[in-house]
Simulated scan of single mutants.
Amino acid sequence: MYELRDKDFIFIFTGPNGAGRKTVAQMSGETLGMKQVISYTTRAPRSAEFNGQDYHFVSRDVFTEAERNNEFIEVIEIDGNRYGVKERDVAQMIEKHGAIYLVLNRFGAEALKKLYGNKAVRIFIYADLKTIVKREEDRGDTPELIQRYTSHYDEEMAYKDQCEHIFENLDLAHTVFDLTKTLDDNYLHRNLVDKD
C-alpha cells in the first residue's frame, strides 16, 4: 500500500443518491485543484453519464478478472451491479496530486476509512427525500428509476453521523462555498480568496 505523506488527503463524498454529492464533489475539486479517482462498475451508464468521467463502465468479465488479481480496495454489489475502486488508481493519483477525492456510497467510504485512517475524510452530502425525488423528476428519470435510486435513502442517511463533515445540499453554490472553505481551513491550507 502507498505510504501517505503529511500533505496527502483522500476526501470521500458520500450520502444518498440524488443529493448532488457528485456535482458538489466536482465543483469543490475544481475550486481546490483536486483530482477525482474514478470507480469501476459493471452497470450500464445512466443517460447523463460518460465512461471515464462518472465511472469506468466495464463488463462483468473485466471486473471479475481485476477482482481476481486483487486490484480493488473494496468491491460491493448493489442491485445486482458490482462497484470497486482500484488501489493503484488511488496511489498514483495521490502521489501525483497530494489531495484527491472520490464519490462513493457508505460501503466504499467505510472501506477507505479503514484503510487510510485519519487521512481519509468523509464528507456527507444530503438533502431531504422530497427534494431528491423532485430533482430526479426534473431530470426526467422514470418513476421506476427514482424508486430504485431512493430505495436505499434511509440506509445511506444512517451513515451521516459517522462522517467527519456533514452538509445539507439545498443551495449548490452555498454548499460548495462552505465545503471548500472547510476543507481549505482544516486540511489543505491553500488560502482561498473570497472574491465576493
Rank of each mutant, 00 (worst) to 15 (best):
Q147S: 15
Y116P: 00
H97T: 05
G117P: 02
Q36V: 00
E65M: 12
D79G: 06
T23R: 10
V121E: 11
K86A: 10
I76G: 14
N105H: 08
G108K: 08
A111E: 14
E77A: 03
F57V: 05
I166K: 13
D54F: 01
G98F: 12
M1W: 08
F13E: 06
D54E: 14
E144C: 00
D61S: 14
E137K: 11
E156K: 01
S39P: 10
E3Y: 05
I38N: 00
V90S: 03
R122V: 08
N51Q: 01
R148G: 05
D128S: 03
K86L: 03
D178T: 10
D154R: 13
G15R: 04
S28I: 00
Q92D: 15
V133K: 13
H174T: 11
Y187A: 01
D171Q: 11
I73Q: 03
R135Y: 07
H165S: 09
V62G: 00
Y159H: 04
V103N: 14
V133R: 13
I146S: 06
F13A: 08
Y153S: 08
I146T: 02
G98E: 03
I38S: 01
R46H: 13
G84Y: 12
K113T: 05
K114R: 15
G18C: 06
P143G: 04
V133S: 08
R82A: 11
E110I: 10
F13N: 02
F13Y: 08
D79N: 10
F167P: 00
E71T: 07
F124Q: 08
E30G: 10
A120G: 09
S28K: 05
M157E: 11
Q26R: 14
K181M: 10
Q92L: 15
G84E: 01
Q147D: 09
Q36A: 14
V62A: 14
K160N: 04
L183Q: 02
Q147K: 15
L104A: 15
D161A: 02
G84D: 05
R106V: 04
A19C: 15
Y149I: 02
K7A: 12
R190W: 00
I125W: 04
V103I: 09
D138S: 03
R5V: 03
V103F: 06
V85P: 01
V103Y: 02
Q36K: 13
N69T: 04
N17C: 15
L104Q: 15
L145R: 15
L104C: 11
A48P: 00
S47L: 12
T23Y: 07
S59A: 09
V133N: 03
F11T: 06
G84V: 07
M34K: 05
Y101C: 05
I12E: 01
T142F: 06
E67N: 12
A173Q: 12
D128W: 03
I73D: 09
Y126G: 01
E3D: 13
R43S: 14
S151C: 06
K7Y: 15
N51T: 07
T180R: 05
D6C: 10
Y40K: 07
T131F: 07
L4F: 11
K160H: 04
D184Y: 08
H56W: 08
R5S: 06
